[in-house]
Design a protein around this nucleic acid. Structure first.
Lengths: 189, 189, 189, 189
DNA sequence: ACCTCCGGGACCTCCCGTTGGT
DNA sequence: ACCAACGGGAGGTCCCGGAGGT
């Protein structure tokens, strides 16, 4: 039984600083400081900075609650909108300037870490698949035009969301996010 | 005029490495090596790595030829589609794995360099404004439903494009780009 | 008696890695991993890495079976040659690239660990003394010219052997070992 | 034109500490301290600690003056003996406890640095070749029994020397060196 | 303008040994 | 005896930028 739980502190502090500063700009020193953990303890819990980032990304994705989106009840389209509204809320909780962790890593780390690239790509795919599935539920329920290609629309919406968060991040303004919601749900679908 | 060789080499080599590796992962040493320029000459031409990145970003944006898009002739929607097809071609010329320089910088540098953040944000805004303008031309020409909110659609399309490039970068697959084109021009508009 | 398993595993795994990588290049982590022993258990059995190395060196020297060389029967010179052929076989069992543990430690650790330095020096001296003794037996038996200075020859042969193993280690070739055997027994004696 | 000559200082200080402490036990910090060079300057001159060790080894070997041994005048055997007496003097100048740099590296680094292993192996071979050549000159001059196999004897002598230095290093006593000289030149040849 | 050499400081990683609970 | 978790400190490497002479 651990005296303290340095690993969880590292995950917590690591998330803060990796999310806010990015991977390369966040040093292991920054991370252990944010986690209030002695530097020498870092590698007792993670093989590398990359391994910590991987773990953090995994947990980040879990918060999107894909099973809840796929299997929830209520009208599919409303569920989908609520889902994205929830994501927006998550990604703006500490302000609009930090974007989405997986979006950030997708551009910064695709060429530097194969494991992270795979995890991020897989997360986008899984997310897209669930969105697509909900779109199909909406078509089955007669909420959405059955002639629409859900398999193309699902990933498109996810990509558009990521583009919007990046835009919000750089502009410092949540408008892109609201625009995403409005355009997607009032015009595209 | 003296040979401006060194500076141009720096811009060229700097673009390669900044685009391919990202800002923090590319060292000034990498840049001067790619540019075949002695290390010590770097600071004769740029005050800092940031200044070089700024210059490179400026030139990168110029290649999007916004004036050409706004003022070209031919049917507006066709022009817009050709514009984005050209951008896709530019961003996939050396493969799909490098994404879009301004998209990359938007996520990596928003929190680190105020000048770059401003430049990137301004570039997105300018681009969005031109796309919006073309959309309005399409409405005037009766190509596009006049009731659509062009001011919302323009930026949305730009954001969706950026989301798609990021997705392609991380997946290693150009499908997101083709999906962007198809969905945007066949369904959204 | 309790299972002395862990300690023996440590000696076994420690030998592997200390022999193959050298003292400084082998970490305690490497050792416990090779021994399949939890890190925390190491210090229940040895006060330090140095103490383990000492124990390993002691056992290594025992395998040379000096009593067997001194007290064996048969013609002294033949016994001596068989002895060195056996040593060569031991030191090349896993290939020629690892040398002789005490030779390795003699160069790497003479200045770092007084106990190991003493043990290694003492081992060389003991070995030399036995070789000298066998040389005297050979002189008594008329196998070897009685005018030779056995007290000088014994240590010289040992030193030459160590030089040959080191040479083999660095060249990756067993020729120095065969040369040692041939020259020593066909020409020197 | 350099303000100071940090590279040469590094070679000098690096030799001291690498020779006296060994490769792994000598840190880059130790080296720069011994060289009175700021730590940050190290990598302006050498790509790595290994590269410095390589350079130092190269220069060390040059001091053996192999061309001088091969091409000198005077009776071959006397020249050879003077050569080894000179080497002994070099290797005992600061005491007997440091051994021979290439002998030290041969055991410590054979498995860690391929470039150093090659350089050391090549140096031994070159040295052996010259010794062999001088032996042949001695045979031609009638100083040495022509039936002896010089090609085997040359390398054997070099190996014996290295074994003797290692022995002296660990025993703290120059006796092995004197024994090497006496036995080699009074009995072996 | 050019460029060789310089360097304070920080990077990620890992070292050896300990602590304290079972 | 065992061992999971701990940690002060150092390891080799490289960063961005500057100094100073040509």
């Amino acid at each position: 039984m651990p005296q303290r739980n340095l690993k969880e502190q590292l995950v917590g502090g690591g998330f803060e600083v990796l999310y806010e500063k990015g991977y390369h700009a966040a040093s292991v020193n920054d991370i252990v400081a944010a986690a209030s953990v002695p530097k020498g303890s870092f590698y007792n819990h993670f093989d590398s900075k990359e391994a910590l980032a991987l773990e953090i990304t995994r947990r980040y994705v879990e918060r999107y609650d894909l099973p809840g989106l796929a299997g929830g009840d209520g009208p599919p389209l409303a569920r989908l909108r609520e889902h994205f509204e929830g994501i927006v809320a998550q990604n703006t909780r500490r302000g609009v300037r930090y974007g989405c962790l997986i979006g950030n890593f997708s551009t910064e780390l695709a060429g530097h870490s194969e494991p992270i690239r795979e995890l991020v790509a897989g997360s986008f795919d899984a997310w897209s698949a669930v969105v697509t599935e909900v779109l199909r539920q909406a078509q089955a329920a007669g909420e959405l035009d059955a002639s629409l290609d859900a398999g193309r629309l699902g990933p498109y919406i996810v990509d558009s969301y990521e583009g919007a968060v990046a835009r919000a991040k750089v502009s410092g303004d949540r408008a892109p996010l609201d625009r995403f919601l409005a355009t997607t749900f009032e015009q595209l679908l």
